[in-house]
Simulated assay, not measured.
Amino acid sequence: MNTNQLRQDIIDYSQKIGIDKIGFASADIFEGLKQRLKRQQELGYQSGFEKGSVDERTEPARLLPEAKSIISIALAYPSRIKDGPKSTKEERRGVFCRASWGTDYHDVLREKLGKLETFIKARVPDANTKIMVDTGELSDRAVAERAGIGFSGKNTAIITPEFGSYVYLGELMTNIPFVPDTPLEDGCGSCRKCLDACPTGALVQGGQLNAQRCLAFLTQTKDFMPDEFRPKIGNFIYGFDTCQVVCPYNKQVDFHNHPEFEPEPDVAKPKLKPMLRVSNREFKETFGHIAGSWRGKKPLQRNALIALAHYKDKTAVDTIIVVMNEDPRPVIRGTAAWSLGKIGTDKAYAAIREAMEKESDEQVLTEMEKGLAFQEVSAT
């Protein structure tokens, strides 16, 4: 088997099936990453969404014992919505981060990698392979960095020379020993725009993220959002990508190479009030195909309530009162009460007081007290 010719054939085929960038890496242990991950654990900086142990996340042979190479791919996604809907005083809108526009990237990348896998096995029938996209044990970014797809920026994203950091990543492990690509040199230099723009200080230093303070992570949690972070998410209902937007490598970058990733304007920027009362079926029909739906509707509805508070949307008061009184979920009832207090109308405060008389959940009662505290502040 001529692996050099096969390597070139794979590159040529990847371009035919719409892969924007491809690179090859060795399947050696990611020693540097292993030490960083252990340090992250010690500091309590992990999100809890990580899959597998540190060893599984840094030793490819634990996932595919005969692994020799890892093929990394990148697909570019749009950074702008053409003719995007505007938020108005009557109909405020939330926003999903750019990485959740269009069809769920996990599905699209798995399809592309599946085609690569079929292509390889047609030429090497005894090839062993394993596909991973985001939810696998390996770090997509560490693989992409080793494969020369891009360098790891201070915002912890992979930054490509061609597409900035607006790329989705996936990989295919194999027992075929391909010649690896050369990693790119770091391109951040002394720039610290992402660190300065992070509203919570989640970027502790260049390339190190405290996920527990990252708004992108916090928008995906299902419990009450800590008070400190509520004013900072603005109208984001899923994800947060300011650290990418301010990056000089992303200036004027907007690729529309894949129809699957084209944002549906009313899905990427949904109206907030209807979201509060959406049924499970409506949620699945409207949002089920995008990456931002993976945690279900509860976090998004909680964030929608926070966004309405951010806007001080008085037109939403009646709807939020119904949510506070009728929703069976304490996190939603409590956040609704807090939101009403933040919006701050007389009707909102009266509704909170009335609801407190029949509320039994201690956490919800605490949120109601927080809501009423806004009245005291505004009166001083």
Results as ranks from 00 to 15, higher is better:
46 Q>Y: 04
118 T>C: 03
72 S>N: 13
57 R>Y: 02
60 P>S: 12
68 K>H: 12
72 S>T: 08
87 S>Y: 11
96 F>L: 07
56 E>N: 10
133 V>Q: 05
40 Q>C: 07
77 Y>A: 09
92 R>V: 15
112 K>P: 08
136 G>V: 15
76 A>R: 12
100 S>W: 01
49 F>G: 02
70 I>F: 09
65 P>T: 06
127 A>F: 06
40 Q>I: 03
112 K>L: 01
73 I>C: 11
89 K>H: 11
73 I>S: 02
115 K>L: 09
63 L>F: 14
32 G>E: 11
94 G>A: 11
69 S>F: 00
103 T>H: 13
46 Q>H: 03
123 R>S: 05
100 S>A: 01
130 K>D: 10
45 Y>A: 06
95 V>I: 15
38 K>F: 04
32 G>R: 07
109 L>D: 04
126 D>M: 00
91 E>W: 12
109 L>P: 04
95 V>G: 05
67 A>V: 15
115 K>V: 03
36 R>D: 14
51 K>G: 01
75 L>P: 02
46 Q>K: 05
37 L>P: 00
31 E>I: 03
131 I>G: 10
120 I>V: 11
37 L>T: 00
33 L>W: 06
79 S>T: 14
46 Q>G: 01
65 P>R: 15
85 P>Q: 11
119 F>H: 05
68 K>G: 03
91 E>L: 12
68 K>N: 08
103 T>E: 14
57 R>H: 07
87 S>V: 05
135 T>D: 14
104 D>R: 03
75 L>V: 09
49 F>D: 08
76 A>Y: 06
